[in-house]
Simulated scan of single mutants.
Amino acid sequence: MQEFVLQAEHLEFLIQVIRGEGYQVMGPVVRSGAIVYDAISSANDLPRGWSDEQEKGYYRVNQTDSGAYFGYAVGADSWKPLLQLPRRKVWEAHRQNNTLDIIEILDEPPARAFLGVRSCDLHAIAIQDRVFADDQFRNESYAHRRDKVLIVAVNCTTPAATCFCTTMNTGPEVTTATDLAMTEIINEKEHYFLIRSESYIGKKILKQLPLTPPAERHLDAEERALQSAVQKMQKGPRNFDSSDVKDLLYRNYESPVWDQVAERCLSCANCTMACPTCFCSTVEDTTDLTGDHAERWERWDSCFTGDFSYITGGAVRADTRSRYRQWITHKLATWHDQFDSSGCVGCGRCITWCPVGIDITEEVQRLQELERTL
């Protein structure tokens, strides 16, 4: 795949060309002490010179003198809320005289470009595509939004301490299909992006940019930056052998580890809300006082909530122990049976946003260690 050099001062050209093609650009911005994804109109809106610091139950953003536009790991949110809406109206019904009209609600989303998508999030979007768009039970709201998305991925060269995409084989380098992919490189003398296209619209955009062919030093710098990110994660405490995780969880369904984690878990559902692949939802039906108007709303839900598994006779998972076991077993084991892949992409958000610092990688390693000692 041929790459080109886009100087950092020309990043504005890329954003304006994308907007000129009719896309609303969504990218990282600093807001309320976090890097989140929102609408941007120029390169000045990007978090230039900002980095993030993440650990168990800990998140901070800090200003640096690097001048990097994408010098952070992953946003506090994923791209999920822009595709699987946290709350949406499904239909509404009106009764007048003896006539009942039921109207399906299908809004018209704008064409959007996601700028700054990391490889882990790219894998997460692909997973949600399989769930909502490629499966027999198609979610038209999601599919309609997804069809209008152009993705500009950015290789990750600054992983956070909570990142473990190398363990899950989802990064840090973008290796899955996307419209445009970039790597930001900064050294003492240069600040530029290596950029390539992998789609018709991507190539169309590249033709409108002031690009130059890369020299050997550009390609070498990209390789060094990516390998540095890989080594940082591989040497970190969250690197573990994931080859046997599915069977490991099946073998340890009654492990005492679940009792230990249940003593700390609040069943708050933060991990599932932050996760870019969790897709559980519920529906709410409401009727006005006259009985002539009714609505159905779909909203995010979680396997950690008490009512989620409630059926006639009570909840299937009535305690925290069973709920955490369900979440991690589905994420790392039964997901393979359903969708032929892991449900975890190693972004680390569930670790960062757990208020009591529960770490999914530590729980896996605890199960592995327990087996070794038996």
Rank of each mutant, 00 (worst) to 15 (best):
E9P: 03
L11G: 05
L14S: 03
I15N: 01
Q16Y: 08
R19I: 00
V25E: 00
V29C: 04
V30Q: 00
S32D: 15
S32H: 14
I35W: 04
L46S: 00
Q54S: 15
T64R: 13
S66N: 10
G71P: 01
G75I: 05
A76H: 07
D77I: 03
W79E: 00
W79T: 02
K80D: 03
L83G: 04
P86S: 04
R88L: 10
K89R: 15
K89H: 05
V90G: 02
E92W: 06
N98Y: 07
I102A: 13
I102G: 12
E104L: 14
L106Y: 14
D107F: 12
V117M: 09
V117C: 07
V117L: 10
D121H: 15
H123A: 15
H123M: 10
F132D: 00
A133D: 04
D134N: 13
S141C: 05
Y142P: 02
R145M: 10
D147F: 05
D147N: 13
K148W: 06
I151P: 00
N155P: 04
T157I: 12
A160C: 15
A161H: 14
C163Y: 06
F164V: 01
V174Q: 04
T176Q: 15
A177M: 09
A181D: 01
E190R: 15
E190S: 13
E190C: 06
S197C: 06
Y200H: 08
K204W: 03
I205R: 06
Q208I: 03
P210H: 09
P210R: 08
P213I: 05
P214H: 03
A215H: 13
R217Q: 13
R217M: 12
H218D: 03
L219M: 13
E222S: 11
R224L: 06
A225Q: 01
Q234H: 10
K235L: 15
K235P: 04
D241G: 11
D244Y: 11
K246I: 03
D247K: 13
D247M: 10
L248Q: 12
L248E: 03
Y253V: 00
P256K: 02
W258Y: 11
D259N: 14
A262V: 12
A269Q: 05
C271T: 09
C275R: 05
P276R: 10
F279C: 03
F279N: 02
T286H: 06
T287Y: 05
L289P: 06
T290K: 12
D292P: 04
A294L: 06
E298M: 14
D307R: 11
I311R: 13
G313N: 12
G314P: 10
A315G: 11
R317Y: 14
R317E: 03
A318L: 07
A318P: 08
A318R: 07
T320P: 08
T320S: 14
R325D: 08
A333I: 05
T334M: 08
H336V: 02
H336I: 03
Q338D: 12
Q338A: 08
D340C: 10
C344L: 09
V345A: 03
V345R: 05
G346Y: 04
W353D: 00
C354I: 02
D359V: 06
I360R: 00
E363H: 04
R366E: 00
E369H: 00
